[in-house]
């Protein structure tokens, strides 16, 4: 199984080459094109309770699509619904990743994706939602972002500040706290940053260059008022 990023950038897509018998799962509706050797089917991944939990709590689809090379080798092209970049992560069985809701794009079928709570206040203030996704197991994982995606690697105890709603994924060893952007509330609000996430290493953190909520606010000014 081989994951490749095709046309990285704002309209990135991935190509997954599968040997006969191999399978991946992908976000529902993400398949763009595929070899006829492949079969696609909807799957309630993680059992009905797990899928319901994921769908209700993170807003992901109830179903993942499974793409299986049933009749021979083949490849499939997969793209996210929103414009943005894609990056590839490796799960080695010893590590795991947390993903902001809706950044899962595709993975080896053996990778498990489940919804987990990140706590009430962190959920409320981080911009990432009350529930996030946890990817565990062994295999390749592709995640998507809104805008471009960038990785920083933190040593044990090293800290970094990421604006809220810009976190895409982080290693399970990384922790974060939500705090004011400046020492005072006035300065935090007037700087336009408000609340930020202070991430603590060790491990990798991926962030996105665009904030979906801010983009929504920007575009709303061009929508004519109802009436």
């Amino acid at each position: 199984m081989k994951f490749e990023i095709i046309q990285p950038g704002s309209y990135a897509m991935i190509k997954v080459t599968l040997a006969r018998g191999e399978a991946i799962k992908a976000e529902s509706g993400a398949m763009v094109a595929m070899h006829p050797n492949l079969d696609v089917e909807g799957k309630v991944d993680g059992g009905m309770f797990g899928a319901l939990k994921r769908a209700v709590l993170t807003g992901e689809s109830l179903f993942f699509q499974t793409l299986k090379a049933s009749r021979g080798d083949g490849e499939v092209y997969i793209a996210p619904a929103v414009p943005g970049d894609v990056t590839i992560l490796e799960l080695n069985g010893a590590n795991h990743f947390f993903l902001q809701k809706q950044s899962f794009l595709a993975s080896d079928d053996a990778v498990s994706i489940e919804a987990v709570s990140q706590g009430f206040f962190k959920g409320l203030l981080s911009g990432e939602g009350m529930f996030i996704q946890k990817a565990t197991g062994k295999g390749t994982l592709a995640i998507s972002s809104f805008g471009s995606i960038y990785k920083i690697s933190l040593a044990p105890g090293q800290q970094y500040i990421v604006d809220n709603s810009h976190l895409v994924a982080w290693a399970g060893t990384v922790t974060y706290d939500v705090q004011k952007a400046s020492s005072g509330w006035f300065s935090s609000v007037t700087s336009g940053e408000g609340l930020v996430c202070k991430v603590n290493g060790p491990g990798d953190v991926w962030f996105q260059s665009r904030n979906p909520g801010a983009f929504g606010s920007w575009i709303r000014q061009f929508i004519p008022a109802k009436g």
Binding site: N92, A94, N95, T173, G201
Partner: peptide, 18 residues
């Protein structure tokens, strides 16, 4: 026991091991 090991070279980079 399986684990993820940091501190072997580049900061932030880890290597799985037992």
């Amino acid at each position: 026991f399986r684990g993820d090991v940091f501190g072997l070279g580049d900061p932030g980079q880890s290597c799985p091991g037992s």
